[in-house]
């Protein structure tokens, strides 16, 4: 076991030189490189963390936006549904009103037709009755209907009460033109003279009489002196007939709109 002190000194110097060289070529570069890499990794991690936080915030924002959109869509849908329901109700109401109006129009039309029909029936029935009565009178009484009507009218004038006759007389005195006699049938000269005679006898002896024809009277005679009028005609009987016919038509027509409504 020998110690060569010269070698010891040389080895100490060698070792110190080695420490310096290794510090220069190994420890410092390696340590620095590691430290720099660590710093860079840390900064990258921090960057990644920031980016992630950013992305998460963005995702959160998008989610909120989507929920908002969803909510507004729901709202719009419910609004649209409400509007559709309102529109449907409105259309239904309109349609119902239109149907009602059409039904009313139809009913009015029916009513008019019925009235028209009744009027025509009445007119034709009146004419028919007059025709029949005239023929019956001609066949069986040997005289014409106009003559009978004129006779009846003359009898009526004779049967007038005093009050009515006074009024007619007063009216005849005031009148300055001829009195007018209207009849539905053409009066023969005999019948005319009979009526003229009755007027002269019962109202005023010197009255001028003028004859006219009026289909509206159906069957009868009307005497007009100024504002006063004396009339005998079959219209009264026809009015009763009309009433009866009305009742019959009303009774049969009452069923028809109901049937129309139920079938429509």
């Amino acid at each position: 076991m020998q110690i060569d002190w010269l070698t010891v000194a040389a080895q100490i110097v060698n070792f110190l030189v080695l420490v310096w060289l290794l510090q220069r070529f190994l420890y410092r570069p390696i340590t620095n490189a590691m430290a720099r890499r660590e710093v860079r990794i840390e900064s990258r991690l921090a960057e990644a963390k920031d980016a992630r936080a950013e992305v998460e915030a963005e995702a959160e924002r998008l989610r909120e936006k989507r929920e908002e959109t969803e909510a507004s869509r729901e709202e719009m849908l419910s609004e649209a549904r409400q509007e559709a329901a309102d529109l449907r109700k409105e259309l239904e109401d309109d349609l119902r009103k239109a149907m009602e109006a059409r039904r009313k129009t139809w009913e009015d039309h029916l009513e008019d037709e019925r009235d028209d029909f009744a009027a025509r029936l009445r007119q034709r029935a009146g004419h028919q009755v007059v025709d029949i009565v005239g023929r019956v009178l001609k066949d069986y009484a040997g005289s014409d209907l106009a003559g009978q009507v004129a006779g009846t009218f003359a009898d009526r004038l004779a049967d007038l009460d005093d009050g009515a006759r006074d009024k007619l007389t007063t009216a005849a005195e005031r009148a300055d033109g001829p009195v007018r006699v209207e009849s539905s049938l053409t009066l023969k000269p005999g019948a005319r003279s009979k009526i003229t005679r009755a007027i002269h006898e019962f109202i005023a002896p010197d009255l001028e009489v003028e004859y006219q024809e009026d289909d509206d009277l159906l069957l009868g005679v009307r005497l007009t002196i100024g504002e006063q009028t004396v009339e005998w005609s079959a219209t009264r009987f026809l009015s009763r007939l009309e009433t009866t016919l009305d009742e019959v038509i009303e009774g049969s027509g009452r069923h028809r709109p109901d049937r129309a409504a139920s079938s429509g």
């Binding site: 040389a10 490189a33 860079r40």
Partner: peptide, 24 residues
């Protein structure tokens, strides 16, 4: 001393060869 130098040379040259091309 000679072998010590050899070891030193081995260590220093090896370190230098590697640390000359350090990558970060």
């Amino acid at each position: 001393i000679v072998f010590t130098w050899a070891v030193m040379a081995f260590l220093v040259l090896g370190s230098w060869a590697i640390t000359a091309r350090l990558s970060e």
